[in-house]
Amino acid sequence: MSEQHVQSVLHSAPGSGAELLEELGMVLYVGAALIFVVVMGLLLHAVFSRRLRASARAWVIGGGIVFPAVTLFVLLTYSLAVGSAVSALNSGTALQLLLNCFGIDSNARIPPPLPGTLRINVVGKQWWWEVRYRAADGELRNVPLANELRIPVDEPVELMVSSGDVIHSFWVPSLAGKVDMIPGRTNRLVVRTSEPGIYRGQCAEYCGGQHALMALYVVAEPRERFYDWLRNQAQPARAPTDPFLRSGYDAFMQGRCPECHTVRGTPAEGTSGPDLTHIGGRHSLAAGVLKNHIGTMAGWIAGSQDVKPGNLMPDSEIHTGSQLRALAAWLESLE
């Protein structure tokens, strides 16, 4: 199990765009504090000093006009440079020059994606994330998943984010800045990190009653493990072998579950809810709300409206106790 990182802009992942944002933040916090201290010092000096300074005019022009103008200009260009480096939207020569002035090599940090870059579509929905991998490899084209992203370390990954209903915002503070998910529009975000681990993210644009419970995990793994995982995710679900799991499978198919959920390799092909083909291998249930084990699975199926009131999944009222357990056990077996 990889290490889980704190979800915080102050804990940016090494080699990520968030690292530049954290540096920018530090420059602003420390700079603002210094300026505040100096201004307060001058204020106290002006109040308590008896002597009238002959150079008052110079202070007004220097400290009131020249200093703020220069400081703000430098900060503005610096923040624009960071913004461009983080989003890697553009790397024109003039901009490149500007980036180099501040010691930021945008190409080293986040190169513009080459053909063959791993591309992941993420669609925000009330209140979960639909994820679709589009790797260059023919076999791995179009792998649908939900509520969890995995990325290889030391490799830029292109996220194409959009929305299926209202405006959401994709935000994994340790990896990158926020990018809005807007209906009818696709925004692009390139993420990258050199440190394996589990990064938490969440929706950063109010999107309805359960906005606060719309989270996800991004798991960064070494390249080989990542591609093993992706190959496995592309496979359909295996048929249940043991009779107990079989009864769980039957409970799923006889209930209303297939109306909304897909389990690839079975007749369940609903598309309004998350794809469950490999749900047992995810770190969370209900979009980052619950840990994933058989108990939370059963509880979520039977009481989803208690956990996340107003979400589109109705409480299951048709399964007997043992059917519910079998259903949860079967879903947990789908790794």
Binding site: H293, G295, A298, T320, S322, A329
Partner: peptide, 14 residues
């Protein structure tokens, strides 16, 4: 729970 009460909805928790 299931080993003691086979019809229960409560799974065996690790």
């Amino acid at each position: 729970a299931p080993s003691m009460s086979p019809d229960t909805a409560m799974p065996a928790i690790e």
